[in-house]
Simulated scan of single mutants.
Amino acid sequence: MIASGVAALAGNIALAGAGFDLIGAVTALAAGAIPAMIPEASEPANEYAGLITVIGFLATFAPPRSAGG
């Protein structure tokens, strides 16, 4: 719990002047990591589940940004 607080403080300081694009990318990456924390032992792609989830969240974030939206 202390490590989470320290990490949150460090992130807040490090991203204090960051733009909306960077904040959005970090948020998308974090949102993709949350479901990856739930182990799915019965799935054959278990070791790649986290990576696949993060790529999926980033893929849904990228098209509107690249289209100038």
Score class of each variant (00 low, 15 high):
P39N: 05
I52H: 10
S4K: 11
I34V: 15
A49R: 15
P64T: 07
P39V: 04
S42Y: 09
E43L: 13
A18S: 10
A49I: 10
L15N: 00
M1N: 13
G68Y: 02
Y48F: 14
I38M: 12
A7F: 10
G19K: 02
L9Y: 09
I34E: 04
A41H: 11
V54K: 05
V6I: 15
P63E: 09
A67H: 08
G68P: 03
I52Q: 09
A59L: 15
L15I: 00
A62D: 07
A67R: 12
A28L: 05
A28T: 05
I13N: 02
P64D: 07
I23M: 12
G19M: 02
I13G: 00
N46C: 09
R65C: 08
I38G: 05
M1F: 12
G11M: 04
A45C: 07
P35A: 03
G19N: 06
V54I: 15
A18N: 00
G32Y: 03
V54H: 02
A59I: 10
A36N: 05
E40V: 12
A30E: 08
G24A: 15
I55V: 14
F20E: 14
M37D: 04
A8G: 11
N46I: 08
M1S: 12
L58T: 05
G69M: 13
A31W: 07
V54L: 06
A30S: 12
N12V: 09
T60C: 14
L9G: 10
A18P: 01
A59T: 14
A45P: 00
A62H: 04
I23C: 08
L15D: 00
G69H: 12
G56Y: 01
G17C: 03
G68L: 02
A8L: 12
G11K: 00
A14G: 03
G5I: 06
L51M: 13
V54N: 03
G11I: 00
L22P: 01
A25D: 03
A28C: 05
F20R: 13
G32K: 05
A36F: 01
A14I: 01
A30D: 04
G32D: 09
N46Q: 14
P63K: 10
A28N: 01
I38Q: 11
N46D: 13
A14S: 03
L15C: 00
V26K: 02
G19A: 05
M1Q: 09
A45I: 07
G32V: 05
A8R: 08
A8E: 07
A14K: 01
P35L: 03
G50N: 05
G56H: 02
P35Y: 03
L29Y: 12
